[in-house]
Design a protein around this nucleic acid. Sequence first.
DNA 1: TTGATTTGAGAACGAGCGTTCTGCTAGGCT
DNA 2: AGCCTAGCAGAACGCTCGTTCTCAAATCAA
Lengths: 205, 205
Amino acid sequence: MQTTSPNAGRPRRTDPDDALESAMRIFWAHGYEGASVGRLSRGMGVPRAGIYRDHGCKRGLFLASLDRYGATRVPPLMAAFDGDAPPARALRDFLGRVIELGTTDPDTPGCLISCVLADAAGSDEAFRTEFRRRLDAMDRAIADRLRAMPRDALAAAPDALAPLVGATARGLMLRARAGDPAAELLPLAATASRIWCNDPAVRHE
Amino acid sequence: MQTTSPNAGRPRRTDPDDALESAMRIFWAHGYEGASVGRLSRGMGVPRAGIYRDHGCKRGLFLASLDRYGATRVPPLMAAFDGDAPPARALRDFLGRVIELGTTDPDTPGCLISCVLADAAGSDEAFRTEFRRRLDAMDRAIADRLRAMPRDALAAAPDALAPLVGATARGLMLRARAGDPAAELLPLAATASRIWCNDPAVRHE
DNA sequence: TTGATTTGAGAACGAGCGTTCTGCTAGGCT
DNA sequence: AGCCTAGCAGAACGCTCGTTCTCAAATCAA
């Protein structure tokens, strides 16, 4: 977006992508209000002034962290619907990836959007709009994937089932935030995916 | 718990129950970190020193607020399972009450536990334990109600379905936090309750 | 009325907040 | 070599935080 300046100046101590990744993880762990600029600066390896130069203010850094989260953490979830696995298998895989994201790193339990942005959205209109925008985007993406599945494979119409899948995924993220290990959550993914799909042979275990 | 003192002292300006209700709503709206003691004191109608006299510290007031939430907001949800309505009806009623709780007052969107305590649980061990304790209690209560339903009425075993019902309810609370109106969420309750119950006559609309 | 007791109102405290500023440093350019 | 640029390190700003303290006000007992 910008040509290199004639004189390059001192190089950055930390790669901007790495710095943003660190910031995202600090927000993820401590919440928006709980993550102080001092802690962010130290964790990012960027001086305080550098944060304001790059993102304007703490809010800007948080919004950039949300963008990074959406760009790096969400696509691997949706990839569960790639390929042509049976619907029940794809849905179980999707929830499995959700559980993995929420439980893999004990320092960042749950989901930056469902657990952190949700809190910030309580009384801040801009954050609430951002929150809603991201929920809608994910549910719409899920609906797109469900619509591509064979008709009558699902227990409800794709547009009706999609927000239910999204809500369930977020409920699992809250469980992950509480420290539940993946092994305790994966059976939930199996039950949910089974119930969501029309497979008369294996109803009520 | 204590006998009246020989000399009664100056009466309180605000009833302690009303004060705690106000504190709970302020935490609900602004989150744990976002609710300052100054704002709490003003909103409660209790001087700062009174908060520390009654609850020890800000954490103590938050925990007391959680207790009040659990005592006043949760039982009306579980009451959906009273009576002998058909399982699908009871489950839909339950989610309907969840939606109502999360959307009725725009100043306190969503759920104090699922949206506020969840954030605080990220890096605070005590809050995480408290969070998990409350999630477990609710899922156990749901399981008790599901077990009382006629066998083979549900699409999965009660103990397997209960945490799924809990997770879905919390996902709806996040939607409420984002500002979704009840009218947009109620169809989700209908779809979920239908899918959770074995009613072959009305599968895939 | 007086004394004991409990609360209210608000000042005060040190610490930490988000944000900005000041020199100094490390590179590329000429 | 000397200049220009951009970033670093850390001090500094005013403000708000959670917490504590002080003193006047209000009630009951004697």
